[in-house]
Nucleic acid binder design. Sequence first.
DNA 1: ACTATACTAAATATTACCTCA
DNA 2: TGTGAGGTAATATTTAGTATA
Length: 309
Amino acid sequence: MGEGDDDELLSLSLSFGRSQKAKNVPASSPHSASLAPPPFLELNLLAAGHARGGPSQNLQLAHRGAVICNLQHLRHSDLSPDYQPLQSVGGIDVNLAPPPPPSYAEDENAASSPNSTVSSISAGKRAEREAAGDNENEGERTSCSRGSDDDDGGGGDGGNGRKKLRLSREQSMVLEEMFKEYSTLNPKQKLALAEQLNLKPRQVEVWFQNRRARTKLKQTEVDCEYLKRYCENLTQENRRLQKEVQELRALKHSPHLYMHLNPPTTLTMCPSCERIATLSTTTSTASPMGPASLQASLQMCQRPLNLPH
DNA sequence: ACTATACTAAATATTACCTCA
DNA sequence: TGTGAGGTAATATTTAGTATA
C-alpha cells in the first residue's frame, strides 16, 4: 500500500433479493408472503479514486429496479436501526396506494372490449386458464362503474383485439386494501375478489403481480437511497481517515512534533468492521505508533470494507 | 427420476392519461 | 382552443424458474 493508494475510496453497488426457494409462497399461506423485505442485500465495496469521480457517482439508481449497486452480504438489519425496509421510509409508504387516478371510472372510452385474449395464439397454459376461469368475459367488461359507458360504441371493441382498461377507483381501492393484507392471493381469495369486483380472476391475478412488482421497485429505490447515503458517509469517513493518516505520516517525519503526539484515537477502530486496530488507545500513549502498526492500520482500512456486521 | 401443472418474478409490450409546447 | 410529442403509470403478455403432486 503505497502512497498512491491514499486516495482510494469506495464504490458501492447493490442488489438484493431472496433465494429462489423463498420466492414461491404457498398459496395456502398468503400471510407468509406479506411484504417482507428482501432477506439479504449484496454489497460490493470497490476501491475507486475519488479524485476521478465523486463518491456519489458510484451509485446509480437503475431503471425499473434493476439495481446497480452491488452489495454483498448486507442484511437489512445491518444497515442501521433507523433503516425501514418497507413502508414509510422518508415519508414514502411503499405500500400506499398511488393517488387514485382522476376519475378513470368516468372515462369515456373506458367502455371497450374485453381485454385481450389476443395475440397469444399458442399459450396452452394460458388458454387453458382463460377457458377455465374466465368464460364470462367477452364483452362483460370490468366494473359496474364503467358499465354505463359501454354503449358509446367507441371503445376498443373487438376491432383490433385488446384494449386495456383502467380499473375503477373503487376496484383499485378494494384491491389495494386486499393487498395490504395479502400480497398474494390463494385461488379462493382470487375468485372471491374477482367476483366481488366484477373482474376476471386473471385480472385480479395480474393486478397482484404488478402490484408486487411495484412494491419491490419502490423498495428498491428506498434501499438504494439509503445505501447511497450510507456510502456517502463511509466516503466522508474514509476521506477523514486518509487525511489523518497523511497528517500522521507528515508528523512522523518531524520527530520533534511526533514525540508529543497523542495517540490517534480515531484510528483505533476500523469503521467498517469495527475491529480494533493495533494502534488503539490502549497501545499506550507511551509507545507512539511505529511504521508497522501504521501499515497494519492502513491495510485494514484500505481493503474492501465490510459493512458492519 | 420424470412429467404435468400451477404458481411466481422478471422483463417486456401495450394502452391510457397527463403535461407542455 | 385544439393538437401532437414525449413521459409516465397502469394493465397485460411472455418467459423462465421452482414447487408439488
